[in-house]
């Protein structure tokens, strides 16, 4: 019978179906936690065999990285140095440029300019990194060689510069969001005291938004540390313990790519080293993220 009271009756089947759907949705959301666990577990599990042969001390202090040669050395430092140098060059471009663009778009540009330029700028972050690598190798390096004739064909400078341009939209859009979150009345207060736009931007808005800007910088650093293809294409893939950006060098990620390009049997020494390198990379990103978290907590302004 289809009486109203019948239709409104409690339906156990419907209730069960709802619970099943909710459980399914929860599992999908839980995938992210599972992925994190899987990443850590796989990196540790696959690199343990290496640390049975090589002590952690040697891994951290040896100044050569030649795991695939007869005279094998397992010092991660040359790769870490390469990663740091390319990251530093990239940040030297991305942080000033990204911050200036963010201030300009948030405090100076008209609504129309902002709305039309932002999507174009964000395309910079969408270009495939292998295309950037090609650009660095074929265009930027020859350009730099005109200024510095002794520059080698593969070098960390051009890879880092191009990487910096790639990171600009990440830095600028997160910083701009943070600056726009600074309430209007604070700016108005500053203007009422007779400040110019530039004074308001640099002395009121930027300090007020610093916790968000710090987060943007950290995002940029993470991007630069993990970036692979630009370095693999344009910086050469020879491990080289140097802090000179004019030289070629390998980074942690470009080493992984280089080894993975060759024949890589499961459980071989090459196989184990890329996981150890990956673990190092992961820990480096983690350290930067913790610093970023701490910075943004310390400088958080509550309005």
């Amino acid at each position: 019978m289809n009486t109203p009271s019948n239709r409104l009756a409690y339906k156990p089947l419907r209730h069960i179906k709802e619970r099943i759907i909710e459980a399914g949705l929860f599992l999908a959301a839980f995938m992210s936690v599972a992925t994190t666990f899987a990443i850590v577990a796989i990196l540790v599990y696959e690199s343990i065999p290496l640390f049975k042969v090589v002590s952690l001390w040697t891994f951290l202090t040896d100044t050569q990285w030649t795991p695939l040669f007869d005279d094998a050395h397992y010092g991660i430092m040359p790769l870490v140095a390469g990663t740091m140098v390319t990251t530093a060059v990239a940040l030297a471009v991305a942080i000033p440029m990204g911050t200036i663009i963010a201030i300009y778009l948030s405090e100076f540009a008209s609504h129309k300019v902002r709305e039309s330029i932002k999507p174009v700028l964000e395309l910079l972050g969408a270009v495939p990194t292998v295309v950037y690598g090609y650009f660095a190798l074929i265009f930027v390096t020859p350009l730099l060689q005109k200024l510095m004739p002794e520059l080698s064909g593969f070098n960390m400078l051009s890879a880092g510069l191009v990487m910096g341009i790639m990171i600009v939209p990440y830095v600028s859009s997160v910083s701009e969001d943070a600056m726009r979150a600074v309430p209007m009345h604070i700016r108005e207060g500053s203007y009422a005291m007779g400040s110019t736009r530039f004074q308001t931007a640099t002395r009121v808005v930027v300090p007020g938004a610093f916790s968000g800007i710090a987060a943007a910088y950290i995002l940029g650093i993470s991007r630069a540390v993990g970036e692979t293809m630009i370095v693999a294409v344009a910086a050469g893939m020879q491990p080289n313990f140097t802090l000179n950006p004019l030289e070629p060098a390998a980074t942690i990620s470009s080493y992984i790519v280089q080894v993975a390009l060759g024949d890589l049997p499961h459980g071989s020494i090459g196989y184990q080293t890329i996981f150890a390198a990956g673990l190092t990379l992961m820990l480096m990103t983690l350290v930067f993220n913790v610093i970023g978290y701490w910075l943004s907590r310390k400088f958080r302004e509550v309005y």
Binding site: I42, L43, G226, T285
Partner: peptide, 11 residues
């Protein structure tokens, strides 16, 4: 979202 893409490759 902040994990380097190459780490996904290793996973």
């Amino acid at each position: 979202a902040g994990v380097p893409s190459i780490v996904y490759g290793l996973l």
